[in-house]
Each structure stands twice: as C-alpha cells, then as structure tokens.
Design a protein around this nucleic acid. Structure first.
Lengths: 215, 215
DNA sequence: TAGATTGTTAATCGATTAACAATC
DNA sequence: TAGATTGTTAATCGATTAACAATC
C-alpha cells in the first residue's frame, strides 16, 4: 500500500536527514520533517515505517539509526552496477554525474556505434562498440541498462539489452519500448514532465488573469 | 479528474499518433492505441477526451484532427520560452537537446558563474553571467526557468529566478526547493526515479528466486 | 503524571476500470 | 439493420489524510 509513491519519496527524506545530521541534530520528529518538506506528518510516518521502526514516542526518530535504515532499505549499501548505451551529450552527462555514487549506482561501461569514441574512456569508463553489449552484459551478469540513444534506435538497443540478460531498463529516450514479460522499464520522460509543468503554469496564469479581472 | 496523470500521458499518445500517420493511416481506434501502448482502452478515450472530440463511433479518431487537437491542447503551437541556469554537462545536454523544439520549448539563453563560458555560445544560445539573470528575465518576461546547477547552489539560484519574475522552475537538481506561493516547481528527480527502478528490479528478482525454490 | 510523538485503523479523495447506452 | 466504436455513469482500487489509541 502506498508502495510506489512512498518509494519515490524515500530518497528525498534521506537527503534531508543527512543535512540535519550534519547540522548536529541527534533526533527528528515527523512533524518537523513534514513542515520542512511540505508534506503531511502522517504520510511521513507511514513512509518511514516502510524502512525503519526506530521511531520513539515523545522523542521522535534517532537520526543515525533512521539514516542507516533508509540506506539499507533503498539498497544503497550493495551497489548496483549498470551499462550505459549511447555516449552522446545526455549519456556523457550521466557518465560524469557524480551523485549516482550516492544513490548506490555505478556505471561500469558505455557502448556506442560511433567509432570515434570506441576504445576511449569517458569519466574513467571504457566505451565499447555496441555489438559487444549482449555478450559483455551476459558475462558480467549486468542487470541494469541505461538507455540514452536517439529515439529511433531505442527499441533496437532495448532488445540487445534484453538479449544480454539485462532486466531493468532506465529509458531516457522518448520512445515507447515494447519488452517481454519480466523486464522492468523505468521511463524518464522529459515530454511528460514538461507537459505537466506547462499545464500547471498555464493554470496558474489563467487563474491570475481571472482574479485580476474580478476585483 | 484524472487531470495530472492524463496530462502526463498525452505527449506519449501524440508521439505514437505521429508515427501511425507517417505509416499512412488515416484513422485509429482507442482499442488499437491501448493495445500498442499497453493501456486500458477506456483510459485512452478518457485521456483523449480532455483534448479532442473528434472521435466517431464505428470509425474511431481521424488521425490528422486528433494530432492537431492534441498539439493545440498541449500548447505546442505557442512556443514556451525558457532560461537555463547552470551550463555544466547536464545543462549543455539540455541546451543541445533538439527534441525540446517538438515539445514547444525554446531555451533562449543560459547563465553560469564560470567566466570561461560567459560571453560564448552553446548550441547557438548566449551564455550570460549569473548576475544578469533577474534583470534579463524580468525584461524578457521569462516565465520558465530550467535549473541544472550543483545541488548546493540550487536554492540560491531558484530565489534569483523568482526575483526575476520566473513562475515555473524545472528542477533537475536533487535539492528540495522552498519557493513562495504561486510558483510552480517541477522536480525531475533522478534519485526518486532510480529508487523506483531498483525497487521494482529487486521485487522481480526476489520473486523469481522464490518461485525457483518451490517447484 | 502530563505532554509529546509514534503508528494504526477508519474515512476521504482521486484515478482507474467495468458496464452500458448512444451513435455512426 | 447489425456491428463497431465512442463517451459517460457507476464501481473499484489505491493513495492520502483524519482521528485516536499506545507509549515513552
């Protein structure tokens, strides 16, 4: 229950709690967290209860224990390894993105069809020809694939990933992927996100125009 | 009702419909769309009804009209202009991202504190010193700001955006932003997205291990 | 003990799905 | 007319919030 929505909020709590800890706090209450993160305190307690039972009435949550519990629950301790396919601008931005380490994600190698990057390193990670993907993925038992190729190539590359035994595809393209049962696809859709942003913005501006018109 | 969730799906329909049109189709049914996009046909009809009333019993939707209606509804026709702050790797990837044009988003300029990029152009767009942001945003009546700075600078820059009259912040950092009433924040949280991906993946692997154990 | 805070059970809210009448 | 398909009304499902008992 509330599983997926809660799951998405946990990293936000974790980042926030680490800041509080750095500021020298030893405990924190759900009320305080809710206030700072603009959430409902009951929701905070329910979310945290998924990962930790360290909360104590009257005192709140001990910060150290809570952080440990969250990290363990999110699987940050046992690093997940991934291959990235598509070493274009976005792919490179992700290869160099140093906050992935904090999330427990480690990109081991990149793949691309462009011969001018093959054999070189980006952010200290080797770039291989795309053909090598299925074989290498299988031999290294890779489970996560990050997809940053042009939209037209997305489906084809996704199939190579699946052929290599990859089970979870983090899709940064705007392509709609068709994959077999038992494969997880996580879409990072800029189009969807921007549609929501412009929708919220135009609702806001429309409201204001209206209110301005009726004094 | 179903407003936000539907809104996020519309760009996906639009991309799909354009492909069907290119393939020479003239009409399409909600059943077919649902099948190809792995959705419920009733949901497809309800989503499309937000933007268009071109559907006809027996024949389905005329592709041309439906695409036009969706584009108009999503506001793709009247381009939204934006400023981008933080011309690092991610910022540059977005500056060069050519699919934004299709979404109706046009980034007019970038801002950065690094003097070595100031005065130059990236993807044909000028890079200004950060100090110029509030004044330029106000004079150009900019409404959308794209935030791709390091996490520690995020709050500070968000405040500059607000000071410049920007009303919608597309936040690509992992910072939790505190903004006044009447400002829209759209978070593009990698951490949240990755947490959901690894959660789904480990549920999947756990399930399989279990099923494998009980033959 | 009194007060603050957690965690749970029940109520509400919003989104998805099922059933079906309308219509081309 | 018969059949396919839309769009709407009602039912279900899942997530959020309110009320409150448990407890430090």
């Amino acid at each position: 229950m509330a599983m997926n929505a809660s799951m998405a909020r946990l990293p936000k709590y974790l980042a926030y709690l680490k800041i509080r800890q750095k500021q020298g706090e030893a405990t924190i209450s759900s009320t305080k967290i809710a206030e700072d993160l603009h959430l409902n305190p009951v929701q905070v307690r329910k979310d945290l209860a998924m990962a930790s039972h360290a909360g104590r009435p009257k005192t709140g949550y001990p910060l150290g224990t809570l952080i440990d519990d969250l990290e363990r629950f999110l699987g940050f301790s046992n690093v997940s390894e991934a291959f990235l396919v598509g070493a274009g601008r976005l792919g490179r931005a992700l290869l160099y993105y140093d906050q992935f380490a904090e999330l427990g994600l480690s990109i081991l190698a990149a793949f691309d069809t462009d011969p001018t990057v093959q054999g070189f390193e980006l952010a200290g990670k080797p770039v291989f020809p795309l053909e090598k993907l299925p074989d290498l993925a299988r031999r290294m038992q890779m489970r996560i694939g990050i997809l940053t190729v042009p939209t037209v190539a997305a489906q084809e590359v996704a199939e190579l990933m699946v052929a290599g035994g990859i089970r979870a595809i983090w899709n940064f393209t705007s392509a709609h992927l068709t994959v077999p049962e038992g494969i997880v696809v996580q879409n990072e859709s800029m189009a969807a996100s921007f549609a929501m942003l412009s929708n919220k913005l135009s609702a806001l501006l429309r409201n204001e125009a209206q209110e301005g018109g009726t004094p």
